[in-house]
Design a protein around this nucleic acid. Structure first.
Lengths: 155, 155
DNA sequence: TGACAAATATCGTTATAACGACTATTATGT
DNA sequence: ACATAATAGTCGTTATAACGATATTTGTCA
């Protein structure tokens, strides 16, 4: 990691600020936890992003969702929903429909196969999250959520 | 987001657990803060990962660091340090030396140009982090760090 | 109505990440 | 000393992300 505290001759790199420390811890923790999810999804051939989109679509139900609405709800931004959906469509997990009312809009729906796939993942994913964070008390988890919300609140 | 609470006919998706909620908040917050860093680094043509490696190398000083040591210290894992270093080398920010003592090892050092580049970024990055998290009290930031450490402690 | 702006999605291209296989070098054990 | 394993880094390939530019359709307003 950068920003050491020990002295060296010449110009030293600046000390790390508390804010930067938070940033680094956050990135590091997010990465570690993400790796676990990747592991749980690997058998299904899904990336975390693809999994996220399928779950969004499952939540949307039969009426589906426009691409832009999908983008808004994603955990991590991805400006190119088109190709993300492309891959899901090729594998038969979603379908696309061009809206008649507003022909600019494409509505995406999860298929039966997509729902089935998700269902096989529900329990493993919940278990994985349990193993991952089960050792932290509920009180602390709630506190963590609050702090995270605050941390990105200023955006 | 997936995992709604409202009822629907047929099988409903399972409710979201507290652990999963923490996971999602964590990913979301990490992503939002990362975007800010990307913005601050864009003028220099650096990605957050490249920036991270340069800072690691600055911290290592003149003696440099083996590729594997770099990988260990990175904020987010990247198994392919080779090509990451390739790009930095092409742009003149690092140099590579094959070690005589153990010829399997390549030691990477930051160049003067690399250090200069980092120095121009130091203040903007600190300021950016300040804007990003300055509205959260020091006490809360410290609490957040502790919780994040705990959250990934079980790995 | 017609010109122009805004919204929506798609696609071309380049850069980077991900996954393995591979090479070179050193350590280990008999 | 030699075969074998372990270590460190490189590279080939495929998939995905990032950045713009480009249709297409709809809304706005003079």
């Amino acid at each position: 990691m950068p920003g050491q505290t020990r002295k060296r001759k010449g110009r030293e790199p600046p000390l790390r600020t508390l804010e930067e420390e938070v940033f680094l811890q956050l990135q590091r923790t997010a990465d570690v936890l993400l790796q676990r999810l990747e592991g749980a999804l690997k058998t299904a051939g899904l990336s975390p992003t693809q999994y996220n989109v399928l779950r969004i679509l499952r939540g949307a139900g039969a009426q589906g969702l426009a691409c832009q609405r999908i983008a808004e709800r994603m955990v991590t931004r991805d400006p190119d929903v088109t190709r993300l959906v492309d891959r899901l469509e090729v594998r038969g997990w979603v379908t696309r429909i061009r809206e008649k009312r507003d022909r600019r809009v494409i509505t995406v729906c999860i298929t039966r196969a997509g729902s089935d796939l998700l269902r096989t993942l529900d329990k493993p994913v919940v278990r994985m999250h349990g193993r991952q964070l089960g050792h932290v008390s509920e009180r602390k988890l709630r506190s963590l959520i609050k702090l995270l919300e605050q941390a990105r609140g200023s955006q």
